[in-house]
Design a protein around this nucleic acid. Structure first.
Lengths: 162, 162, 162, 162
DNA sequence: TTTT
DNA sequence: TTTT
């Protein structure tokens, strides 16, 4: 079985960052990906693709991407379902991003969201590492540089609360 | 903007073949793709991914795949929305397959569905070619062999009603 | 059989544009793609991947990309071999780009190479269309916009000699 | 930067399994991937793509694939160069497989190579785990099932010398 | 509504 | 509910 998705598009709005009860960060965002072709009316439509990312890259996304940012995603399609408010099953198809690439120059005007987003609940960090034992591990890469722009500044140690 | 999906999985049921009013074939099917990892309970879950394919490969899919068939898809994620029966918008994310690969040996027991599915409305064929001028063209490849098994028999001319 | 490659990286130098005897444009360039991880010495290495692109996108590449440009490629791996000058066979693995995405803002300082590269031999154009009948057709899309930045200016008609 | 390759093809010969001085397994093999289109002479050519895989999946590949096996690869393009015997630099482009999917039914006639390939040098195992700290970790998945056929038998513990 |  |  194989399941691979690669996307490049722009965030339709600022990403949302949540934490699980155990303090694991999850970010979600939507990529607008313009189609390569135009429709019968000659307009270029877009697909709006919901993405989810876990752990450290989630924090990076929340920190460095915002509405309109150009970003690349390498991940997998995941499906799930939940009970809708009207009692019927709702089916969801989304992209689980294993890595997210920032395709705009570092520190382009206001790259850093600057929010005080880091409301990560304290005291739960001890349970952090164990949490996702059986989750794909590529999310955890400590040495991944999410910026395509290159540059030598390493964000990991200074900017991120790990 | 980039948008690429590759899947390998098994059909959850027989594909469905429809025709547009102009006689353009569309097949839809769902791929069950087992995840590479097991969940907290040690079970291997699957993602159920809806796929759509147009034109000739649609006919091939209807002809040669059935419930349980192992197949590969190379395509794009597409999103659309429609008015639900309760008046509210329903959002759909699916894979537009540009090519479909049959990953089981040709003529493995009962590869050919054998249905009389070819209820393609006659008389509309003239409008066929013009129809999708602005659609991606890779669907139209006349020389594509959807079987991975190789073999020298070419299905296109004999088995397909084109 | 499936064969799909997606790359995002930077051109190591200006692309080279050639024409076949029949006037079909071919561009070649090398993408430097930084690895997601660092090596034992803590350095981030890169892979240098040779790419080839045909027809209209070849002209676009020659026109709008240059050394250092950030670009995305969606294509296939191709292998070929030729007689080396010392008589022994040389094997080549390269990426046949089906589409190339320009990931830098249009008209960022000097996007347009401005070269008089269009030394396309005249008089051969008549043979152009027929030439590659059996080549993948995605190269031919007349409505593809190679810029991720969007914007409404369509380059195809004004800037390109088609 | 992004770098993703997905292939489905057949092994041109039995895979080769080596071990680093520290006992890390590496398998190499070549996939023949038939092209989706035919050439000017109407023949379907193939690309012959060299692949490398590390650690546990390397052992799996050596154990369960052989000449002619249908397999899928999800990985990255890597380039390297070395001093040729005639003193000049040789450039190599190959695919680093992060996961390999076996696309033929388990225990199809003689799936198991049955070779006594497991000449893994003893005494080095202690250094095994630490070895590739900075290598991508997806190779290490203990719960990945390389067979597309599904089935409940888990090969990892019984059949593999770990 | 899910495949082996 | 959508980006440039």
């Amino acid at each position: 079985m194989m399941n691979r998705v690669i996307l490049v598009g722009r965030l339709t709005k600022d990403p949302e960052l949540r934490y699980t009860p155990n303090g694991v960060p999850v970010a979600s965002f939507t990529l607008a990906v313009n189609r390569a072709f135009t429709n019968q009316q000659g307009e270029r439509e877009a697909d709006f693709i919901n993405c989810v990312v876990w752990r450290r890259p989630a924090e990076n996304v929340a920190n460095f991407l915002k509405k309109g940012s150009l970003a690349g995603v390498d991940g997998r399609i995941q499906t799930r379902s939940y009970e809708g408010q009207d009692g019927k099953r709702v089916y969801v198809t989304e992209v689980m991003a294993e890595s997210v690439q920032f395709l705009e120059p570092r520190n382009s005007q206001g790259n850093d969201r600057g929010d005080n987003y880091s409301s990560r609940p304290g005291g739960q960090d001890s349970s952090f590492g164990n949490q996702n034992q059986r989750q794909p591990q590529r999310n955890t890469r400590l040495d991944e540089d999410p910026f395509a722009g290159g540059g030598q500044i390493d964000i990991s140690d200074d900017d991120l609360p790990f």
